[in-house]
Amino acid sequence: MDDDPGLTRLIERELRREGFQTAGVGSGLDATEWLKHHRADLLLLDLKLPDMEGPALIESMVAMGRSVPFIIITGQGDERVAVDMMKRGALDYLVKDVNFIEFVPTVVRRALSQLDKEHRLAAAEADRHRLEQEILHISELEQQRIGRDLHDDLGQQLAGLSIMATMLSRSLASRAAPEVPEATKITELLKKTVAMTRSLARGLHPVAAEPDGLMSALHDLATRM
């Protein structure tokens, strides 16, 4: 958009010759109305429009939620203002000089290439984040599975062995058998192992003990022995 209709037509003609689709307007109000009903990939924005200056138009677009990437077009002597606009988000700027028109397609193409890279980078970052979340979810499920296995299988098997070892120790003690000290050590070791297994299982996946879980484990042990 530019306050000079003739210059706007020249810019459009040069860009269309290079394969770009264009729409030209001559004021900030026209630009605002056009953006309410259309989508633009990039704006060529003159710093000084008939009804408002470039910075005011950018603020207006942001306020209406229609922020569009833009390139500043400025007259000679306004380069400092153009640099300030780049700090506000402009992708580049063009100075109206003798060779101004022929540089427009190159600057536009460079800006669009930059935008494309940024979009692809953002998409890759989103994919990476999604993949991290999926891996984390799978890891949590696997952790829970291991916790359940420890609790339901190994933990209850060890608990059954611990009870059997306790009963054996008592039986040996009642007969004053010489194996009592060794049996007692085995019983204590099994109790510690059961406690460690349960603690590890709770850390991996807190589970509620099933009422008949221990009895099932004991029955299975008795069958195997």
Rank of each mutant, 00 (worst) to 15 (best):
L200H: 09
D3C: 08
T223D: 15
A165E: 01
E18V: 07
H129W: 04
P69Q: 05
D3H: 06
F70M: 08
D78I: 06
I138W: 05
T223G: 08
A63W: 06
K48Y: 11
R224D: 10
A195C: 10
Q76I: 09
L44R: 02
E33G: 00
V62P: 02
G65R: 00
P181I: 05
Q21Y: 07
G24M: 01
T193D: 13
G203H: 08
G28N: 06
L172R: 03
V108T: 05
L42M: 11
D220H: 08
A40V: 08
M64S: 15
T223H: 14
L47K: 00
Q157P: 00
D41E: 15
V207H: 06
W34P: 02
Q21G: 14
D212A: 10
A40H: 09
L168Y: 12
A40I: 08
K117P: 00
P181C: 04
H137L: 12
G203Y: 04
A159L: 10
S216M: 10
A126H: 08
D149Y: 11
L154D: 06
L29Y: 07
M64K: 12
I163T: 10
L221W: 02
F103W: 02
D127A: 15
L112W: 06
A123L: 14
G155E: 03
Q143S: 15
P69M: 03
R80N: 03
A201D: 07
L115S: 05
R148K: 15
K185E: 15
L221E: 08
P5Y: 02
R145A: 14
